[in-house]
Amino acid sequence: MENLFVSMAAGIRSLLGSGGLSEWATDFLVMFLKLGAILVYILVSALWLVYMERKVSAYMQCRIGPNRVGPMGLLQTTADIGKLISKEFIIPKDADKKLFLLGPILIFMPPLAVFAVAPFGKGMVAIDMNIGVYYFLALASLSTVIIWMAGWASNNKYSLIGSMRVVAQMVSYEMPLILSIVGVIILTGTLNMSDIIHAQENVWFIFLQPLGFLIYLIAAVAETNRAPFDLVEGESEIICGPFTEYSGMGFAMFFLAEYANVVLVSVMATTLFLGGWLAPFGLTFIPSWIWFLLKVYLMIFLFMWFRWTYPRVRVDQLMEFGWKVLVPLSIANIFVTGIGKYLYHSLGW
């Protein structure tokens, strides 16, 4: 079990190698397969998360949620996607047609690209990038532009307001997001995700960086535009924000991309703070990738829990909270972490 995927990759590699392919081509193909597997995982998990969200919300609201399509309603999302695919993709008359069409296509790119560096288990990382965390931050910032683009291209006033909110919100919360991670980076001295996980072998960083984790959590909720920071979509205010004019599969893409982003930030939280695929209490007989997924889904449950409990904050409160609370706090966190690390080293405790 533990080495299921790793040995699968090795097997494919040796198979290809014996097939007479050059080493370079083999590398290329294996990499391709790895990325393909991740793609499949993301898509499937986005589908599953829609189901999970509906179930979680239903359970929190004394309902039972989807239960008609498939056993326990498991095929509900599939049915929904089927329905959405079959629906017309309406392009408003005055929309900027090219950008309008491009929006749903591009929205999946940043999360997909980031997943390439995510360590899913022991040795299970597609590209072990030297600047992994930084790469995540850099690419995560791109989705802002894409959502903005989609909203702007719709030529709808609600979309426009939503677009402006996207820009304001995601740019503001990128600051605390980045700064909250800095604490971890100070502790590990590396940007490589695998190294960060290895650094947590003794103690997870959630215990060393509780404030950092909290800030990361809040900023991540804001980055993924989920309640209580779902101003971008804010359905009671601006209908659906940038996605108001999207219908059919276009809407479905945005919908799924939101979940892809949720998975992404959860994966990052797991990697940075929850020890990644490391098993707690020495329960190593469970494979590392299962541990990883468990932690990721725990994080995702947390996100859903927030969403179905909290009302939405107002846009100025959002900005104020981001700039006046989270940013100073995260800077303080960096400061404290630095001092702590210095003391730790110089006192030799």
Partner: peptide
């Protein structure tokens, strides 16, 4: 009102 400010769960509870 809860739904208006974004918390849908409260809405479901009161309707229940």
């Amino acid at each position: 009102y809860a739904a208006d400010v974004g918390g849908l769960t409260g809405f479901i509870y009161t309707f229940r």
